[in-house]
Amino acid sequence: MARPGGRTTAEAVREAEAGLDSHREDGMRSLAATLARLEAVCAAREEGAEAQVYELASAFADMAGFFDTGPLYAAAFSLCETSDRMIAGACWQWPSVEVHLRAVRLILAAGCDANETSRLLLGGLATIVARLPKQPG
């Protein structure tokens, strides 16, 4: 790093972003598959499904965070926060999960664009989170 020549930080960042972008299509397919699993868990509502929702939502948010998914990541994070609070507060509400999943589906289908629609959806999700009891600590 102290020697002249070589790559600049900006060049290294551009190369890293280009490498990540080459995996974007596979990442989006993986996100769609995880969303389908979340929707199936929500529809089945079997015993232990609440923990599965949090686990899958967390995996979804992790993957969305690798790519520039803007409002998609924010919606996934909101689902994580919602499910975490509902589990901790013993106040599980399936409609809250369903609304999140529909919002995630809409944002994903719209190409993860930050626009007025996604801002309205995220505002609605924030209202759901705000109504849930906060974690102590």
Rank of each mutant, 00 (worst) to 15 (best):
P133V: 01
G137H: 03
T117L: 14
L38H: 06
V13D: 12
R131N: 11
G19W: 03
P4T: 12
E25S: 09
D26L: 12
R14I: 04
V13C: 08
D113A: 13
A110D: 15
F77Q: 11
E39G: 06
A36H: 12
V13M: 13
E11P: 07
T127M: 10
R119Y: 13
T34M: 13
A130T: 03
L101H: 03
T8A: 05
E11C: 03
G123P: 04
L38C: 01
H100R: 05
D68H: 14
R14M: 11
P95G: 04
E17Y: 06
R14H: 12
G137D: 08
A114G: 09
G65D: 00
E17D: 14
Q52G: 07
P133M: 02
L79S: 05
L101I: 01
V129M: 07
S58M: 09
S22A: 15
L122E: 14
L38T: 03
I107P: 05
F60C: 02
A10E: 15
D26P: 00
R29I: 07
I107L: 02
D113L: 13
C80R: 03
G111R: 01
M86I: 01
E46C: 05
A64Y: 04
T127N: 10
F60Y: 08
L72Y: 00
M1I: 09
K134S: 11
D68T: 11
L121N: 10
E46D: 14
A49F: 14
Q52H: 12
E55T: 10
G65S: 02
P136N: 01
S58T: 10
C112M: 10
D26K: 12
F60D: 03
C112H: 00
A74K: 06
Q52E: 15
E81S: 08
A40H: 11
A16D: 13
E39R: 11
A36C: 07
L101N: 04
K134P: 06
L121D: 12
V13G: 06
D68G: 09
A2R: 08
E81F: 00
A76Q: 02
E98D: 13
M28P: 02
F60Q: 07
G65E: 03
G27D: 05
Q52V: 06
L101P: 07
S22Q: 08
R14G: 07
G89M: 05
R105V: 00
S30K: 11
M28L: 15
V99G: 04
M28N: 02
S118M: 06
S96N: 13
E47D: 15
E55K: 10
A103H: 08
V13Q: 12
A76V: 05
A64P: 06
